[in-house]
């Protein structure tokens, strides 16, 4: 007897993912359309002023911002790539341990070294004060006072 595919139709599952993306766009757009139809519009210039707790807005918004935190962005990139590289290892780990073909040190060792190298990087960033929102003025002074 030849095996026919079962009655249940096989579909590419990414079609459904794409459709949810479509529905996910459709719902906000639909709400915006409904709102457009029922909301009033009373144009008035002072209403559109930038909100600064009721005061007259002063200065622009696109100011210079403390760049210190870009170090953390770099750190994030490194760790993010690291998670991408670790995921395949995590998927095959249990099978590799149970297969007895390779010793535990061989499976675990490279990952431990990999993580250790990155943690050294984190330790350096930690010591140099990169993983902070902002250095407090006290901290800067204390460092400047150092002989």
């Amino acid at each position: 007897m030849r095996f026919e595919p079962p009655n249940v139709t096989e579909m590419n599952e990414w079609i459904a993912v794409g459709m949810l993306a479509f529905v996910g766009l459709l719902i906000p757009l639909g709400m915006m359309a409904v709102s457009y139809l029922i909301r009033p519009s009373v144009p008035e210039t002072s209403k559109r002023a930038t909100y600064e707790s009721g005061e007259v807005p002063t200065g622009g918004t696109r100011i210079r911002f403390n760049i210190q935190y870009y170090m953390v962005a770099l750190l994030f990139l490194i760790f993010d790539i690291e998670t991408v590289l670790l995921f395949p290892w995590a998927v095959v780990y249990l099978d590799a341990v149970e297969s007895d073909a390779v010793s535990l040190a061989e499976i675990l060792g490279p990952m431990l070294i990999f993580v250790a190298i990155l943690l050294v990087g984190l330790a350096w960033a930690w010591r140099s004060g990169a993983v902070q929102w902002a250095r407090s003025p006290f901290q800067v002074e204390a460092e400047a006072d150092r002989p």
């Binding site: 709400m31 409904v34 709102s35 029922i38 909301r39 009033p40 519009s41 009373v42 210039t45 209403k47 559109r48 002023a49 930038t50 909100y51 918004t61």
Partner: peptide, 11 residues
Amino acid sequence: LLSKENIIPED
């Protein structure tokens, strides 16, 4: 909420 005026800041 949907029938509120949509105020868009000038900048």
